[in-house]
């Protein structure tokens, strides 16, 4: 669909393979940026660690106030046996809560698009659940729910599910109105419309919600452990933090904290990778624009 004769253009290109200086410069700049994206945060990280160690040593800060990074690393290595068990407990709660948040959030969103009446009736209560400070109702949850794992999951779920619900609900409604007309003209059933139009259109929104919910599920798991204790089960990382603070084992507290942060980062990266896998072929958010 161009005016120019393609054959002539092709032969011209073959005759003189032009090396566009601007293009080369642009590619180089792109490569620099790609490297910098990893290198810069890493350099900042090293600098901060160095500064921290220097501060602790130079000012002779006692380790029960602020342990240096070296001591924290040593503690992490030494106590890894206990801490990894706790880490697994917290991770399990986080992942289960996230799975429930996906089921509950996406499920409710789909239910809402199927019936306006259900949406009108229930959505306000979803907002209420979302805005109620979970710490404030923790004692009630402790009284009403008997099983420890159910309590912990319930708390983490409340914290995590809302972004998935609200994002997916928006996504399901965001499909192009002409495509909806097209579905009507071809007499698509409700189920077909959901499957072929609304669900794919909602996918980027859902994944955006999932990215937020992943972090929130971890926060929810930690909050749940803080408020519910270990319940006689294998203690999680939050419980280790509390325990260390009672016993003034500050280096160990830092080790547990570091494990939590690393877990959060890992969850974020995994969900980002999943988004990229699912969207890179077609969605703007995952596309690398040429210009």
């Amino acid at each position: 669909m161009t005016l120019a004769d393609p054959a002539r253009l092709a032969s011209a290109a073959a005759a003189a393979p032009v090396v566009d200086a601007e293009e080369v410069a642009r590619l180089a700049a792109e490569r620099r940026e790609r490297i910098a994206r990893w290198l810069l945060p890493f350099a900042v990280f090293l600098a901060l660690i160095g500064l921290w160690q220097w501060y602790v040593v130079a000012w002779e800060v006692p380790h029960y106030r602020l342990p240096g990074p070296v001591l924290v690393a040593e503690t992490l290595a030494r106590d890894f046996g206990t801490l990894s068990g706790s880490w697994w407990t917290t991770l399990r709660v986080t992942l289960m809560a996230l799975a429930l948040a996906v089921l509950g959030g996406a499920g409710l969103a789909i239910l809402f698009t199927q019936s306006r009446w259900i949406e009108l009736s229930l959505f306000p209560y979803m907002v209420v659940l979302q805005v109620t400070p979970i710490i404030a109702i923790a004692p009630l949850i402790f009284i009403y729910i008997d099983s420890h794992i159910a309590r912990v999951l319930f708390i983490a779920w409340i914290v995590a599910f809302f972004p998935i619900l609200s994002n997916t609900a928006i996504g399901l409604k965001s499909s192009d109105h002409n495509l909806r007309d097209l579905m009507a003209i071809y007499r698509a059933s409700r189920w077909q419309r959901l499957r072929y139009l609304q669900l794919p259109a909602a996918l980027p929104y859902f994944l955006g919600g999932l990215r937020i919910a992943g972090g929130l599920a971890l926060i929810g798991a930690v909050v749940a452990e803080f408020t519910m204790g270990s319940g006689g089960q294998a203690a999680g990382l939050a419980f280790r933090i509390l325990e260390s603070s009672y016993r003034m084992q500050i280096p160990r507290m830092f080790s547990a904290l570091i494990l939590i942060v690393l877990t959060g980062i890992a969850i974020y990266l995994l969900i980002s990778a999943l988004s990229w896998l699912l969207l890179h072929k077609w969605h703007e958010s995952a596309l690398k624009r040429e210009t």
Binding site: N178, P200, L203, W282
Partner: peptide, 15 residues
């Protein structure tokens, strides 16, 4: 068998 074409191409970007 009615066929319809809108002003915008109205394609599904994911397909």
């Amino acid at each position: 068998t009615l066929g319809v074409v809108f002003q915008e191409p109205t394609l599904m970007p994911w397909a």
